[in-house]
Computed example of a mutant assay.
Amino acid sequence: MNEPWKSSLAAGAVYRSRVRGCILGGALGDALGYPVEFSSLYRIRRDHGPLGATGLVADGQNVVGRVSDDTQMTLFTVEGLVRAHRRDGLDGLGEAAPRLVRDAYRDWLRTQQEHGPGPAHTGPTGGLVTEHWLYARRAPGNACLSGLAEDHVPLPSAELGPPGPVNSGSKGCGTVMRSAPFGLTGASAESAFGLAARCAQITHGHPTGYYAAGALAAIVAHLLSGDSVEGAVLRALRLLGRHPGHEETTAALEAALDLAAQGDPTAEKVEKLGAGWVAEEALAIGVYCALARLRVADALLLSVNHSGDSDSTGSLCGNILGARYGDVALPHEWVAQVEKRDRIAALADDLAAECAPSDPGDPV
């Protein structure tokens, strides 16, 4: 007997697993990389052995599993998108979305300036800004801090291509490390790309910075649709090619694909793609590592054991692999050690529940 609602329920479970996998995977990569961020590959190997870090290690305060500003801002992106979807329904990436995402980032900025939540800092509907654990500065990016002070809201219809008005010369990885959730809403890859790029302009005006954010969102959207990592990147490249000023982002992603095709992944090869401090390099490293290793754990370790912005590259690799394979593929013994993993998973579930694709065959 044909029961289409069963396949619909199965598809819904896969969607929820991939949303959770993307957000938790990013947090895990972040926690793996945060203690070794700013360390050279030589120092990482000196401190942790010839293979570098082989799992979660303690940070400078002897705490294991802490997440950085990468995960913090990703969670506030999720909160902004959930509010946008609740406001606009099926058109959850409509005109209100950039403003609501900006408002969520302004809430994050409060957590970087205040010692803890107070009666006057509850946000429009409470939410993350009320949670004490987020009031922690974990090496936030200068452009993110200064950009949010400008209070810029990009127009949903604004043309992509020219530099944005805020930090117009900045293409730091603070754009891309927070942008995976734009690809998780069930919108088309093109819509996710556009909104992620425009919301990146809230803090960073360089086209390479906001195109990298858009490309990650498009990659994640394609992964949710069932594409392979390579297929998702190739589709994102075609989308990038439609926009003026895409060349740096395109070249970085093409370099990652070419390097992965060579096989024999090493930390030294990772460093051929850069250090990850700027957006296109961080995205390229995340993509390369997701492609170069078959096991999720090995890919995540490859993405953090290099000289540079290890937490951002680890976060991006985790976003990509989690969106591809779901949370069941993440190393559970590592996930169990991630700071506030239950809260992170719950917020991912909120996004999945809010944005779950509807199907007329679903039972009601």
Rank of each mutant, 00 (worst) to 15 (best):
C355Y: 03
V67H: 09
D88V: 06
S8P: 08
K272A: 14
S312V: 10
D311Q: 09
G172D: 05
P50S: 14
P35K: 02
F38E: 10
D88Y: 05
R20N: 15
G26T: 01
V328K: 01
L75W: 01
P363A: 14
R178Y: 00
W133A: 08
R46L: 15
S68V: 07
H115W: 05
G263D: 07
L28P: 11
V36E: 02
D69S: 13
W5V: 12
H222K: 13
S17R: 12
V335G: 11
A197I: 09
L316P: 09
L351P: 07
I344H: 08
L321T: 12
E230T: 14
D359A: 13
A336V: 08
A104Y: 08
S358I: 03
D70S: 03
G205A: 11
V78S: 12
P156V: 00
D311I: 10
A139H: 08
Y211V: 04
R86G: 10
V328N: 12
V14Y: 03
S315Y: 05
A299I: 11
D227M: 09
A84D: 01
L240Q: 00
A11D: 13
A299K: 10
R106K: 04
G186F: 06
R293P: 01
G80E: 06
K6N: 08
R324L: 15
L24H: 05
G94R: 00
A84L: 09
W108A: 05
A197T: 03
V101C: 02
A251G: 05
E190Q: 13
I320K: 02
G231K: 06
R178F: 00
G141Q: 11
A260T: 00
D350A: 13
L240I: 01
D349R: 10
V364I: 07
Q112F: 08
G314K: 11
A53I: 15
